[in-house]
Each structure stands twice: as structure tokens, then as C-alpha cells.
Amino acid sequence: MQVDASEDKPLLWALREDLGLLGSKYGCGIAQCGACSVLINGVSTPSCVTPIGDVTGASVVTVEGLAAADGKLSVVQQAWIDEQVPQCGFCQPGFLIAVMALLEQTSQPTDAEIDEAVTNICRCGTYPRIRRAIHRAASARPQD
């Protein structure tokens, strides 16, 4: 995809305003909350502080890209439904991205590894369900 905007425009705002991808959220703008997280070459990254100039040629995946092209949910999204995780849901795209990145790296994460990797903020307090959903997704994913 191509975006015609100044190089220092944060990726978050290029996604939201230039590409119409509204799933990634603005929550703080200072890399604190993770609501804006996207996968950049597989790494969960706060897009609010990532200038688009830095991602030229990189692969960027937003929450809209987690389901398969035919709409089938990813294992992580399905686990989120099975555990009824979201409350308001505003933080959830960022959590889903952080967890996708974690499970790519560590297929069966321990609680400590989850704590280390998933540092987003959820004001509604969905953390207990997020932890359960991560374990559920980990055990549902095809093992290599």
C-alpha cells in the first residue's frame, strides 16, 4: 500500500486517516498504552510513535489483518470470543496484536513470559480473561 503523507506522520495516523483502517486506536500517543500496536515485520510496535518514514518496505499488520481473507477468525481472536474478553473493546486491537507477536515467538508462553510480553493497558480490567484467552489460544494453535 502507498500513503501520500509527510514522512514524520506517525503510522497510527496514516493508518487511520490516509488508509481508513480504524481498528488501531489512539490511547496515549506516547508508547504507554499499546492501543495503537501493530505488527511491523512481526514485532508488536506502538504505531503512535513510529513515523511512516521508518516503515518503508516493511510488512505492517493491523487488527483488521488478523482474520483470514475469507473472514475466518484467527485462533487468538476465537479464544477472545470463547473467553468473552472485551468489555469496551477500545484497547483490544492492541492486545490482540501483542498476543499474536508473543505466540509467534513463544508457542506455549508461561505466565511470566506473558507478563513480559503483554504490557498494554486495559482500563476496563479484562486482564484475567486476557491471560486465560492467551493460554487457550496457545493450546489451540497447530503445533510445529
Partner: peptide, 14 residues
């Protein structure tokens, strides 16, 4: 409301 919320689809005011 949850299926849409895991797809990043709901329209918040923002």
C-alpha cells in the same frame, strides 16, 4: 458486541 470487537470493527466516537 464482542465478535465485532475482536475484528477491530466497532465504531467508537473516535
Amino acid at each position: 458486541d464482542i465478535p465485532a470487537k475482536v475484528r477491530g470493527e466497532p465504531v467508537f466516537g473516535a
